[in-house]
Design a protein around this nucleic acid. Structure first.
Lengths: 133, 133
DNA sequence: TATTGACCTTCCAGTTGGTGGAAGCTTTAT
DNA sequence: ATAAAGCTTCCACCAACTGGAAGGTCAATA
């Protein structure tokens, strides 16, 4: 399989696949013409990577998962631990964003949004203390 | 004021303040010794930037807000528009993360997390179709 | 006065996870 | 024969900083 085929199969751009080779996530063979040759197992790995990335795992997280994926003897506890840590980071991020959202929504609400210059959004950004709204 | 003072006042690291000067967000004077000299207005600007960044505005968003902040004739509608656009991006991000969270939580739930090798998390990552759980 | 330590300067490199483009092969189709 | 598509490498760039090296300056203490 050439890179274009595996790109279609995995849904990842060819550029990204080359990048994943660069950083050692996948190691395709090479044909006599210098083209990368991907095996079935490479295609599977790349699809796996695409899904893990779509779930927000970092590249290093993916690398760990991939190692565990290839180690058929691993304990599922290890995988669960990684996933749970990631879940915590997601929760953290969600609550940060939710707080931001609340603050900003409050400001937007308070702003007339007309042609006049007085704007509570700017006033707040200019003067807010730690706990202000 | 030297950079250390304004760093304390604004809560931004000195490195970040230098960076903000590099990209033209703030333009401190220079003393005869080459040290940056910050006016009150610079300190205010930096605090403004810190707050806007904490609300998740991009640097370019901050640049726009700062321009509007300094233009006492601006219409509040323009500010509101920028804030509303940002609010939409936040909502978008929150819903993406929430979806991720649900998928991952489901997988974590299904995993025994013991010493045995079979792990639904990996199985799913390896085989999931578009709409799978 | 000497010197230590804190503070300041610039510059270069690295982070994360790719993306865009140029220059130049090879292969495939017409 | 030639054009188009697909492949290669390499280099540069994005956001938004952060870390560190090498060196100048300033304030305080011995």
């Amino acid at each position: 399989m050439n890179i274009g085929d595996v790109a279609k199969l995995s849904g990842l751009p060819a550029k990204t696949i080359r990048y994943y080779e660069d950083i050692g996530l996948v190691r395709p063979l090479r044909g006599s013409n210098g083209y990368r040759t991907f095996r079935e197992s490479d295609a599977h790995k790349l699809a796996f990577l695409g899904r893990a990335r779509a779930l927000g795992f970092s590249i290093e997280g993916c690398r760990s998962l991939l190692k565990l994926y290839e180690d058929t003897d691993r304990a599922s506890a290890e995988v669960k631990r990684i996933a749970e840590e990631h879940l915590e980071r997601i929760d953290q991020k969600i609550s940060e964003l939710t707080e931001m959202r609340a603050t900003l929504a409050h400001l937007v609400d308070a702003c007339n949004g007309d042609h006049r210059p007085d704007c509570p959004i700017l006033t707040d950004l200019a003067t807010a203390q730690q706990e202000d709204i």
